[in-house]
């Protein structure tokens, strides 16, 4: 049941407990108890909306930034990663394998704002050896949702 509930919440975090209960054929109390324990146990960290920025008038600027880090003797990549994560401009931080170390998603109102964050805040952190900034041009799929749907076609209304 835990997995099913997590899946449903991932698809739609506003789904009601009663709908979850009906879908999974369990009682509402059980659903509530399960979600409470997922929240308390730190499995569910929060609920958020999937927003198609392009549909907004003043859409923000997003950049994906690759960061190379020289790891420290004690904490490896953690101290630098944790420091970067504290900036409110940074919405995502991942340690990854491959040609660089950290992958960030950084948000700003303008191109300049992001550029200046990189120049003044990010590059100057001790341990950051290089950065590459990629500005996001268009989003096609986010949180499992395809943002530009194909056009509909005529589906028969009654079939055997």
């Amino acid at each position: 049941m835990r997995e099913s509930i997590l899946k449903l919440l991932q698809q739609n975090s506003r789904i009601s407990n009663s709908e979850i209960a009906a879908r999974l054929d369990v009682c509402e109390d059980e659903v509530k108890k399960c979600i409470d324990s997922l929240e308390e146990g730190g499995v569910i960290k929060g609920y958020t909306a999937v927003i198609n920025d392009e549909a907004l008038e003043n859409s923000a600027v997003k950049a994906i930034i690759e960061v190379k880090v020289s790891p420290s003797r004690d904490g490896g990549f953690d101290p630098v990663a944790k420091k970067i994560a504290k900036f409110s401009q940074v919405s995502e931080v991942y340690l990854i394998s491959g040609g660089y170390d950290l992958r960030l998603v950084v948000n700003g109102q303008t191109l300049n704002e992001v550029a200046s964050f990189v120049a003044r805040k990010l590059s100057t952190i001790d341990g950051v050896t290089s950065t590459r900034t990629h500005f996001l041009l268009k989003k096609y799929k986010q949180a499992n949702m395809i943002l530009h749907e194909d056009e509909d076609f005529e589906r028969l209304k009654i079939t055997p």
């Binding site: 589906r155 028969l156 209304k157 009654i158 079939t159 055997p160």
Partner: peptide
């Protein structure tokens, strides 16, 4: 089917 096709805004639970 013919009847349904004449109407708009139908939610169909009639598909197979």
């Amino acid at each position: 089917f013919d009847l349904v096709n004449l109407m708009d805004n139908v939610i169909s639970l009639g598909v197979g």
